[in-house]
């Protein structure tokens, strides 16, 4: 682990923290300028049956009578110490509410990712080793097919076939392996398409490179060529694709939870939005930002370790043909 790498990692970590803070502030501002006032719509809602005294207590406890900037300050400092506040509706800590459902969503999202990776790599492998006459074209059509099918349609289809017809899992209050498995497939299919498209394009590109021809001229068989030569350079950009689409993965998990009737972050979001439970919303959006930033941070930190060509340069000022010319001069100085 070189010094340059540690400097780079420290810098990226600092940037990540700043992005998370900004995301928190941005969410707070957006939530507070949303139309509708939580005090009138939630607390004074006759259905909830709060008395005037209770309402006053909640307002004081949440600090809703304070100026927005003061509210932001309290909220942000609490967030930094790990305190996510209290739900307005249920009067329970937000952290507890989220903790109850988070694991379910994380399991769903990560198994969705696993399914997506498996599908993408399988299809991509097929496009490289299946001959044209045995259906390579069909394999190549999969990503666009997957990408153009909305995932709730896939979900409803799977529920119908495996839930109602084959009765592999309960449709009401589903749990157990099969329920998670089919929900993961629902998420994984569209996601796999994005990965597969990048992967196939990269594999085709790598397969056309001179080094692939040279390796073949050494008698490397197609499957070994795929495994030992093409896979790694083609798969490296997939790290970036995964990092960039992780937000989408979380979003799709929420939809899929609704389709499959699972409890998870999705149902919590739905409840909080409909009741304007601002602390919960603020916490969930911030959590999403934290996850997104973390995943991208990990991708950025991994990349230089995975790809030997990526050189970390600290404090690079500018680079152009003339500088390259000069740099080459140094190299040419070494005896070829």
């Amino acid at each position: 682990m070189s010094n340059a790498y540690l400097t780079y990692a420290g810098k990226r970590l600092g940037q990540a923290v700043i992005v998370i803070l900004l995301a928190y502030i941005f969410t707070f501002v957006v939530v507070s300028i949303l139309p509708g006032d939580p005090i009138t719509s939630v607390l004074r809602n006759p259905q909830n049956g709060f008395s005037e005294q209770e309402i006053a207590e909640i307002i004081a406890a949440q600090g809703l009578d304070q100026p927005v900037l003061v509210q932001l300050w309290h909220s942000l400092s609490a967030f930094l110490t790990g305190d996510l506040g209290m739900s307005m509706r249920s009067n329970r800590p937000v952290a507890t509410l989220i903790a109850e459902v988070l694991s379910s969503t994380l399991i769903l999202a990560s198994s969705g990712l696993a399914v997506a990776l498996f599908l993408a790599f399988t299809v991509a492998y097929g496009t490289q080793v299946v001959p044209k006459k045995y259906g390579q074209g069909l394999l190549r059509a999969f990503p666009s097919l997957f990408l153009s099918t909305p995932n709730f349609v896939i979900g409803l289809f799977l529920i119908h076939l495996f839930g109602f017809q084959l009765r592999l899992f309960r449709v009401i209050e589903p749990d157990g392996f099969w329920a998670t498995f089919f929900a993961a497939i629902t998420i994984g299919i569209p996601f796999s398409a994005q990965i597969a498209e990048v992967l196939i394009a990269n594999l085709d590109h790598e397969a056309e490179q001179d080094y692939a021809a040279v390796a073949r001229s050494r008698g490397i068989a197609p499957r070994r060529l795929f495994a030992t030569h093409l896979l790694k350079p083609a798969a490296l950009p997939v790290v970036t694709v995964i990092a960039l689409t992780v937000g989408e993965l979380l979003g799709n998990s929420l939809i899929t939870e609704t389709v499959f009737g699972r409890t998870g972050i999705g149902s919590l979001v739905q409840r909080s939005v409909s009741t304007q439970d601002l602390p919960v919303l603020q916490a969930i959006v911030s959590l999403g930002a934290v996850i997104f930033v973390l995943v991208n941070l990990i991708a950025d930190l991994l990349y230089p370790l995975l790809d030997p060509r990526v050189k970390i340069v600290v404090g690079r000022k500018r680079r152009h043909a003339a500088a390259d010319d000069a740099a080459l001069g140094l190299e040419a100085g070494a005896k070829p």
């Binding site: 490179q209 001179d210 080094y211 021809a213 040279v214 390796a215 073949r216 001229s217 050494r218 008698g219 068989a221 030992t228 030569h229 790694k232 350079p233 490296l236 790809d307 030997p308 060509r309």
Partner: peptide, 23 residues
Amino acid sequence: RPLRGRDIGFVPQDPGNALNPVR
């Protein structure tokens, strides 16, 4: 395939692109 490399060797045009960059 058994002839590849063993009997017929190949020296390509652009050496900068003729070796796998990540190995």
